[in-house]
Design a protein around this nucleic acid. Structure first.
Length: 884
DNA sequence: TCTCTGCTCAGAGGA
């Protein structure tokens, strides 16, 4: 039996006399999540007292295989022979993090904070691993080496490496692998599989094993190890995989480490061992050590504290990270085993760092929650959540020339999901955690689903695979900005001085028919630190961005163009190309970049020199902010970073782009949607908003909109832009459905006015309102009957459930507000769903309504419950405007 | 019971 629940009391470990001699114990009290609500006390014996030393009340504790016994009429609980004690099991620790914590707790922290920069040993190690996987899948060595090196062309180029020298080195490593493999593989006794993704709900560990041989983990290390035994941290890494395999009912008693740099030349007195492979036994003790180490990490992360280095037996003497470690401690005023050097950053920077560090870690928890749903939710719940495609019928599998597999399956329903072609997903036999699952790349997602995997699996289910990548990149952006950022830049960010401007634009006119746009370009050109361009709906933001970039390049600047979404990056690029500017390099994944921009996309794969110079020499480089935090992009530097959709970015997200440049220009509208974050924290306010509020002088608002008729824009202008937003031309202001050939007489009375309100007298059911959905469909039909093209009509609803409800009744585009941001339609119908009152956070943020109301060009129809809308002053004003 | 995009995934090493 397992016991699990939040700790209410944690006792001190103490020594007691037992009939087996002196033993240590600690008593902890937890409130079991299942069964009785009464707290129960569990005695932790021996080394499990370690958990009591690290855990605190409030943390979750899991004790597996509890010993239950009766003592004086009461049931008592204690750890038994088979027990494991897990602190905060929901916190998922990476196997590699356990490995680095074993090396040094401080190294774990440093790796997390600063990321691992682009360096040759790491890239080479990755290539050797890839080749290893290929060999296991029976691929020819030479072709594998050629292709795997080519795949890393960009990184190798940036590191100034030539293909031949890398190939030589990889070949030497591969020879060791091949020699060793041939001994086992040929006997037919070895059963191999490569790249195994493992997640453990019980132990809160996730990771990916290089390979399994007869069910035992094999880890490849391209470093040198001349000792007889494997390095301790390497053993721990393999043992962690063994622990997860054990949980899945596959007992593992050995592990193998393969040190590919060991050759016959390295024979020493001590080793006397020619083989690169070192087997070691994995006993209970090692597994317990893995869990205890993992517990230390989880406990520390629970209160977001910072390790000092004293947590582990590390010696700073030989550490490669010693200097970095001391600098970080010095700058952030942290206690550290290595000591500290350099000057601390200012008090407010320190406070900022801590605040955002916590906020980002909170987001990490949100990612962990997504993992938990993989095993907590049923398949049907996952599917309803759009996070899985279930009920797939396997159609076949085919081994590809490179030894990987292509799996096909048929969809049995037309359910939608978040999954898209090009995504990484978890392909499984129906059970993504306890069953057989493989990390897959989605190739095709139609009637038929096609994915590629390293090993075959019956494709019955496909799950979204959560990733901590974004969170990790926010952390490195924060690190780079505060610890490595120029003091001058930080003076502005921390409000110690106002942004400076020089008159570089002089009398130049950049845009001659729109004063605000022209002023915005000038401001960006003149900015010595930063410039802010505030672009309300339809004000020609993208055009202005393109003109600004051209002007910056003409002035001799190298420019980084960035935005949160791929869509925004590509839109801006499109505008730039429309203006005849083609000296662009787009960095991003093939599936992320829009098709018409693939011709300027920089491939990662190819000749190192060619790729590196293509990136280096480009006057304009475009990438999402997430990509700006990648190893490749962190090596780049720019004169100016221009960030679109900046009001939808968190501060660290914006900094990821700004960090790469001397100056930055942010474009956005803080009156529209804020950043999407799960937790309520500091990440909710964008840097754009903070700066525009503290430095209005550094901003220009584009005040003429080219989208909406006068009648439609009036409310948003008054409510959100102090009445400053106005139609760019008389034509824009006066546009009407009749321009599309639709007469008022063709429309029902209720929608005859360009802005109308309809109350269908429906009732909210959960997040839907079926009656309202019916009515919305009728209204759509009426517009269509009057002659409006279906492509010109859009429906917006606050909830996804209502979006689905309406979608079933019509063929026009129906979407949530969030997904509609950035686009527009001739006719927009908004479904409010709410009846009775406007309870719910969605209605509280009026910015969302601003977006919904400003998508329409010629006609806007609001559909909702008058009583509910009248109950709130803001919505009441909206109604008065609509009913005018 | 709210909205939801990014990103190859995670791991690749140095003595």
């Amino acid at each position: 039996m397992n016991l699990r629940g939040p700790l209410v009391e944690v006792g001190e470990p103490r020594e007691v006399e037992t009939r087996y001699g002196e033993r240590s114990l600690a008593e902890v009290t937890l409130r079991p999540e299942r069964g009785t609500a009464d707290p129960v006390t569990v005695t932790l014996w021996g080394k499990w007292t370690h958990a009591a030393e690290h855990a605190e009340p409030g943390m979750d504790l899991l004790v597996t295989d509890v010993d239950e016994s009766e003592y004086k009429g009461e049931t008592t609980y204690a750890t038994g022979k088979e027990s494991f004690v897990v602190v905060e099991p929901d916190f998922l620790v990476d196997v590699t993090d356990i490995r680095s914590w074993v090396q040094c707790s401080r190294m774990y922290y440093l790796n997390k904070l600063s990321g691992i920069p682009l360096n040759y040993p790491v890239v080479k190690g990755t290539i050797v691993h890839d080749v290893f996987g290929d060999l296991l899948r029976g691929r020819d060595l030479d072709s594998s080496i050629d292709e795997r090196i080519e795949e890393r062309g960009l990184e190798l180029g940036l590191l100034g490496r030539e293909v031949e020298e890398v190939a030589d080195e990889v070949r030497r490593n591969a020879a060791a692998i091949e020699g060793w493999l041939s001994q086992g593989v040929l006997t037919d006794e070895d059963e191999w599989r490569s790249e195994y993704t493992l997640i453990s709900p019980t132990f809160g560990i996730k990771g990916r094993a290089d390979a399994l041989r007869r069910g035992s983990p094999v880890e490849l290390k391209t470093g040198k190890n001349l000792k007889r035994d494997p390095r301790f941290q390497d053993k721990i890494q393999a043992a962690a995989y063994a622990l997860i395999l054990d949980e899945r009912g596959v007992p593992v008693d050995t592990g193998t480490l393969l040190y590919t740099k060991n050759t016959t030349l390295d024979r020493t007195e001590e080793s006397g061992d020619l083989s690169p492979a070192k087997d070691f036994s994995i006993g209970r003790g090692l597994l317990e050590f893995v869990v205890r180490t993992r517990n230390e990490i989880a406990a520390m992360e629970h209160d977001v504290s910072v390790p000092t280095g004293y947590e582990s037996n590390s010696k700073c003497q030989y550490c490669f990270e010693k200097d970095t470690c001391m600098v970080v401690s010095g700058r952030l005023g942290q206690e550290s085993k290595a000591g500290a050097i350099g000057n601390p950053v200012s008090e407010d920077e320190r406070e900022y760092f801590d605040r955002f560090y916590r906020a980002i870690e909170e987001e990490r928890r949100a990612v962990h929650d997504e993992y938990r749903k993989l095993w907590d939710q049923t398949a049907e719940e996952r599917a309803d959540d759009d996070r899985a495609i279930i009920g797939l019928e396997p159609l076949g599998r085919e081994e590809r020339p490179d030894g990987t597999w292509e799996l096909r399956a048929k969809k049995t329903d037309d359910a939608v999901s978040k999954l898209r072609e090009g995504d990484v997903a978890l392909a499984s036999d129906g059970h993504p955690v306890e069953g057989h699952a493989e990390l897959a790349r989605i190739v095709e997602l139609g009637e038929e689903v096609v994915v590629t995997t390293d090993e075959p699996v019956p494709l019955r289910r496909l799950d979204v695979y959560p990733s901590e990548l974004t969170v990790d990149r926010l952390l490195t952006a924060l690190h780079d900005a505060i610890l490595k950022g120029s003091p001058d830049r930080k003076d502005v960010l921390f409000d110690r001085r106002a942004p400076d401007f020089s008159d570089r634009s002089a009398e130049t006119t950049y845009i001659d028919n729109n004063e605000a746009q022209d002023e915005a370009v000038s401001l960006a050109i003149d900015a010595d630190d930063l410039a802010l361009i505030h672009g309300p709906p339809g004000t020609g933001k993208t055009y202005t961005i393109a003109r600004t970039i051209r002007a910056l390049v003409e002035d001799g600047n190298r420019v980084l163009l960035s935005a949160f979404t791929n869509r925004a990056v590509d839109n801006a690029l499109e505008a730039l190309r429309d203006q005849g500017f083609e000296s662009i390099v787009r960095v991003g994944t093939e599936s992320g970049v829009r098709e018409d921009m693939l011709d300027v996309r920089l491939s990662r794969s190819g000749d190192p020199n060619t790729l590196a110079s293509a990136l280096h020499d480009a006057p304009v480089v475009a990438a999402t902010t997430a990509t700006c935090g990648s190893r490749v992009m962190r090596e780049q530097s720019f004169d100016v970073a221009l960030v679109d959709e900046a009001s939808q970015l968190t501060e660290p997200g914006t900094l990821a782009a700004a960090n790469l440049a001397d100056r930055f220009v942010l474009v956005g509208d803080h009156k529209q949607l804020p950043p999407v974050v799960r937790a309520e924290n500091d990440l909710q306010t964008s840097l754009f908003q903070r700066l525009i509020e503290s430095h209005p002088d550094a901003s220009v608002m584009l005040d003429r909109q080219y989208r909406m008729s006068q009648r439609i824009q009036a409310f948003a202008s008054a409510e959100f832009y102090d009445g400053a937003l106005r139609p760019a031309t008389g034509e824009v202001a006066a546009q009407h459905l009749r321009d599309l050939g639709i007469g008022v007489a063709d429309l029902p009375d209720e929608t005859a006015d360009p802005v109308s309100f309809v109350d269908p007298d429906g009732r909210r059911v959960g997040n839907t309102n079926p009656v309202e959905a019916d009515r919305v469909a009728e209204i759509v039909a009426a517009y269509e009957a009057a002659g409006v093209d279906a492509d010109d009509i859009g429906v917006i609803a606050p909830f996804r459930a209502q979006v689905a409800e309406i979608s079933r009744r019509t063929d026009v585009t129906v979407d949530t507000v969030d997904r509609f941001q950035g686009s527009s339609k001739e006719v927009i119908i908004v479904s409010f769903v709410a009846t009775g009152d406007l309870d719910g956070p969605l209605f509280e943020d009026h910015r969302r309504i601003n977006v919904a109301l400003t998508r329409a060009k010629k006609a806007l129809c609001l559909v909702g419950d008058a009583d509910a809308l009248e109950s709130d002053p803001f919505y009441d004003r909206m109604l008065q405007w609509a009913r005018r």
